[in-house]
């Protein structure tokens, strides 16, 4: 349980590591806006080229970024399928009739079972999902004999294809940008950057210092509490609890046997932590000096200029 990595941060050196977190946060937001302003696929491809160059400059491996995309694959596939099925504009590319018959239903069921079984093994899940979707199409297209129940049209329009590609590329670019931020910025620096940026919110009564302290303490206690969860799970397992298997009802029971002690211990911890903080003269809301300082240097100026140029560029493209 030692050396748990919180967040996606990977220690390293390079251009992005030397930037002030404030610059990085604002740049990512501004670049996202710039990307959203683009409305043609060609401009977007240029933008993704720029994103690639950024990765190269920062010596960030593209594989890393794509691993960050993995949890969003399902969302991407869903967007793709949705656009293809429901966008009704432009020239017709494919016009087929699909059939729901006794054989095709059996085919669909068979494919579903096969897909779930293979997916359980946990390898090539994404590929399997694509093959499953393709299989569904083939089954309903060609298994037309016996007891035709109903038929329905399957039409793909040109805009459906371009739009789906457009949306996906846009998402990928945006996620790449935010991944660069999280890969190269320590969670603590990130909170400190956010704290400084949220300073103006003091006007409406939000104290960003408190907010930042809460986040940094939470980050600090994540490994401690994970460690504890493991201990409690072992303790409960030695008393016959089984967290891995059993019916849903049993599983819920087991989770409760984990959560109740976790909460009790967490409350006790927080009380002791509050005592420790207070005895070291912490007074909420009182000004404090800082050991970690953010420095805005020449690289930050350079980055800001670049980001402003990107934004102006996409505004000009939009307007002209």
């Amino acid at each position: 349980m030692k050396n748990i990595v919180i967040g996606q941060y990977i220690p390293g050196e390079g251009f992005f590591y030397r930037l002030d977190p404030r610059t990085k946060i604002i740049s990512v937001i501004v670049l996202m806006v710039a990307v959203f302003l683009l409305d043609s696929i060609y401009h977007l491809l240029v933008a993704s080229g720029v994103a690639m160059i950024l990765l190269l400059v920062g010596k960030i491996s593209i594989g890393r970024v794509f691993r960050g995309l993995r949890p969003l694959l399902v969302l991407l596939v869903f967007t793709f399928v949705f656009q293809i099925l429901f966008n009704r504009q432009g020239a017709i590319l494919v016009n087929e009739t699909l059939t729901l018959s006794a054989t095709s239903i059996v085919g669909v069921l068979f494919l579903t079972v096969l897909w779930r079984m293979l997916a359980r093994r946990g390898k090539f899940r994404f590929l399997l999902l694509l093959m499953y979707l393709g299989g569904l199409y083939l089954a309903m297209r060609y298994l037309t004999f016996w007891w035709q129940i109903t038929t329905f049209p399957f039409v793909i329009y040109e805009d459906g294809v371009t739009m789906s590609i457009f949306v996906i590329v846009r998402l990928v670019v945006i996620i790449t940008l935010s991944t660069v931020l999280t890969l190269t910025t320590k969670p603590t620096d990130l909170t400190q950057g956010l704290e400084k940026l949220m300073r103006p919110l003091k006007v409406i009564g939000i104290r960003s210092e408190d907010f930042a302290l809460i986040i940094s303490i939470s980050l600090r206690f994540i490994p401690t509490i994970l460690d504890e969860a493991n201990k409690i799970m072992s303790a409960q397992a030695s008393r016959g609890a089984d967290f891995a298997e059993g019916k849903l009802k049993d599983k819920i029971k087991q989770v409760i046997s984990l959560l109740v002690p976790m909460f009790i211990i967490a409350f006790k911890r927080s009380e002791e932590l509050a005592d420790a903080m207070e005895s070291r003269n912490f007074v909420p809301g009182k000004p404090r000096s800082r050991i970690n300082e953010l420095v805005f240097n020449r690289l930050d100026v350079l980055t800001s200029v670049f980001v402003v140029m990107c934004l102006t560029g996409s505004i000009l493209i939009r307007v002209l």
Partner: peptide
């Protein structure tokens, strides 16, 4: 950061 915590509360310069 932990050694600094008490000093931060006492406004000791960085």
């Amino acid at each position: 950061d932990d050694i600094a915590f008490g000093m931060e509360n006492l406004l000791v310069p960085r």
